[in-house]
Simulated scan of single mutants.
Amino acid sequence: MRTDQAVTVRGALTVVVNIVIGVGILTLPREVAAKAGPNSVLATLLGAVPVAVALAALNALAPWMRRQRLERGLEGLIGRGATRVLLGGYFVFYLAFAAVIARAFAEVVNANVLRNTPVEAILLPMLLAAVYLVHHRTVTIMRAIELTFPVLLVTLVVLALATMGRANVIYVRPQLGLGLGSVLGGMADSLFAYSGYGIYLFLLPELEDRPRRRLPWLAAGTVGLIYSMVVFSAVATFGTVEVQRITWPTIELVKVTQIPGRVLERLESAFLAVWVTAVFTTVGPGLFAAAKALQALLGLEEHRALAPMALPVLYVVALLPPNFAAVAQVLMVLGWASLVLEIAAPLVLWTVAALRGWRHRSAPAPRTRPAVPNLRGAAPVRPGPGGRGV
């Protein structure tokens, strides 16, 4: 693989961050506040720690995956049978992940902007755009996502700063007297919003040969900081009790926020326009991960032809939940599945790789026998000066 066609470390960072920030940012303040209360910000920050550990474990697998097919690297670690089971699990998870995120996006747009538009008419363009994105090479997908990342980052930071004037710090002041259980419960709920970072595994075979030790902490830290700012703004504005009664606290937060000078009267319209891009960079990479998992499972050379074939399946899976409440339940199930596939699986792979590397280093070097000369037909050795043969 040529160096100029490799996935850059910066590109991998933006892909990981963008796939995580999606629909979960709208409901995260409500879900975390229901468990952690005033400790919501602390719980959200702690939720980034397991993400960083899992990404660091995947980072350690780079020597096993570098410049070879994904399935061969995994088979070298855990064997052929376990590899096929793991790839099958990743395929089902990321296919359902992309479909349900697209359906949740359609429900939010239908409820807030296009109220007379059928959900199917909102869902299908998002799926078509995701399929079109995935029908390109990995480097092309990475560069497209890199273009949208600054817009999303600046918008979220401006939103958080604009709401600081309405914030009441008392609502978000940590109260450890409530017990560690509330913090851990909020941390577990925040982990569901971090789902998707396991895509890093599918970028490793094409990642450039550069130091990447800071990538896990930068990715987890960036998402954790953005999520914490949003949770702080929502909980500090509405309070720990009121925020639990709002379906999409982030959208309501945007509605009550005013930019100085009244540059925009309906800030939620601008926010939803940027949020569409965030969902697109979540559904697209999710479908990409599903296509790469299926490619490795079937032993194909390319993933590009699999994206159009997955469109009917995506559409059917996205429409299976009858309403938004069912969509939220499916998202919770996917969140629990992500704990297995995106935290437990990388840690197991890292443990196996570490044990194999330790055994390889501790194995004694093979003893070599001294070569025995063939004396048949050999010329006699003449003694040199001092009685030594020459």
Rank of each mutant, 00 (worst) to 15 (best):
A345K: 00
A305Y: 03
V390L: 02
I343K: 06
F91K: 06
V49A: 09
F238V: 10
A34H: 04
L156Q: 01
P385D: 15
L87E: 11
R69W: 11
P29Q: 09
R30K: 15
P29M: 02
Q175E: 14
V352A: 07
L124E: 05
A270I: 14
F97R: 07
V109M: 11
T277Q: 15
I251F: 09
I101Q: 07
L298W: 09
A270W: 03
G24N: 00
A43V: 03
L178K: 01
E75G: 01
Q295R: 12
P38R: 09
V134C: 04
W64L: 14
T222Y: 08
R262F: 12
T277M: 07
A98Q: 04
G221T: 15
A48P: 13
L13H: 08
L26Q: 04
A353E: 00
V113E: 15
Q329T: 10
R10H: 10
Q244K: 12
L207S: 01
L77N: 03
P150V: 07
P249R: 05
A365H: 12
A52D: 09
L55P: 00
G299S: 02
M65P: 03
E252I: 15
A289T: 08
P385Y: 03
Q175H: 04
T3N: 06
A296R: 04
V157W: 00
V340Y: 03
A353Y: 09
V235I: 10
R388D: 09
L133N: 03
L218T: 06
P205A: 04
A328I: 09
L201T: 02
A337Y: 06
G186N: 14
L264A: 14
A188L: 05
L331F: 05
T282I: 01
E71V: 01
I343R: 07
D189A: 08
R245M: 13
V100Q: 08
L218C: 05
A379L: 14
P118Y: 01
A162L: 11
L306K: 02
V254T: 04
W336K: 05
Y227E: 02
A96Q: 03
F280R: 06
L77K: 07
A57G: 06
L253I: 04
P346M: 03
D209R: 09
A34N: 09
S182T: 13
L127V: 03
T222D: 11
I145S: 06
A378R: 02
G357T: 15
I343Q: 02
L95M: 15
A34L: 08
G11I: 05
T163H: 11
G24H: 00
E71Q: 14
P373F: 08
A318T: 06
A291K: 01
L287N: 05
A121C: 12
N168Y: 13
G89D: 00
L311G: 13
L331I: 05
T138E: 12
V139Y: 01
N112D: 14
A36L: 09
A56H: 13
V51A: 10
T277N: 12
V100N: 08
V154C: 12
Y197M: 11
Y315M: 13
F232N: 05
I259R: 13
